[in-house]
Design a protein around this nucleic acid. Structure first.
Lengths: 148, 148
DNA sequence: GCTACTCACATTGTACACGATTTACTCGAG
DNA sequence: CTCGAGTAAATCGTGTACAATGTGAGTAGC
């Protein structure tokens, strides 16, 4: 007799739903800037590290070129970034922030900060949850592929 | 002076990554059954509640018809479910499990159970994390749309 | 200076997600 | 009985994700 797997008891499902809810939250919070959540975290990474190649952006966000290339073309079209083929290594494409992106930084941080404050979770608890979810992520990555 | 938002300190980003990792995990765990993660949770819900309309499935999974209709057409094509227009209310489409789905239940539960056991997280901690993430989800849903 | 390998990025195909609109059906008020 | 409000699915358009493949650019080894 196999024990049933109940949807509401699955951590994967809770995380799945929370991720979608965060997406929805940021879709509204970022609507004025016409940014999606993946575009927003791309900006965050560029604010933090400055100009990077597509590969390096991908490493900070855990995304591959199949996702990033079209995403960044949209961000270029919207005037957030520039994409320039590197001269010293022509395989690389360097991603830089535009003046618009630099100028918008404070307004974005300010507005997102206000919105996230609406959630009303104490900093200590917020950090604790983040560490626990990160632990789950680490556990998942630690499973060797040949055991599945 | 606006305080910088650091990607690695954001709970949204941790959850975003964990969700993708879970997706990857289940893609491998479910490969033998040719099921994706959204298809798997659809099956779970049907195992638990039996035949339901598309709307009811959507309520258990927090998905709308725009996502479910094509997903279920694929599942129908793969022989997991049947889609039949309800006779007493012709607006409804009832989703039922096929014999293949019923017969596969134990094998799926068994295999997924084995795979999740590889994560090695004690049940008490697992539940605690799930409750915390669920709390975050609730907090997000509690924010009135007009405040963003 | 050739060749094989590797690397960075782009492209293609499949599968979600979801807002917005459309279509078909139900039901209750007049 | 009929019409309009409401409902359930389907459809459409946009934007991710990612495996697999293609392409051109470096590079190591002989």
């Amino acid at each position: 007799m196999v024990k049933a797997i109940r949807l509401d008891e699955q951590l994967c499902f809770t995380i799945y739903k929370a991720q979608k809810q965060y997406n929805h939250f940021y879709a509204q919070a970022l609507a004025d800037f016409k940014l999606t959540y993946p575009q927003y975290i791309t900006l965050l990474s560029l604010y933090e590290h400055g100009t990077m190649s597509v590969k390096e952006v991908g490493e900070t966000l855990d995304l591959d070129s199949g996702t990033l290339t079209p995403l960044m073309k949209r961000m270029e079209r919207e005037g957030w970034i520039t994409r320039t083929r590197s001269t010293e290594d022509e395989r690389r494409v360097d991603i830089s922030l535009t003046k618009k992106a630099v100028d918008s930084r404070d307004a974005i941080f300010e507005h997102v900060g206000e919105c996230t404050r609406l959630m009303d979770i104490p900093q200590s608890e917020y950090d604790a949850i983040r560490k626990q979810v990160d632990f789950v992520d680490q556990q998942l990555r630690a499973i060797p592929a040949d055991q599945l």
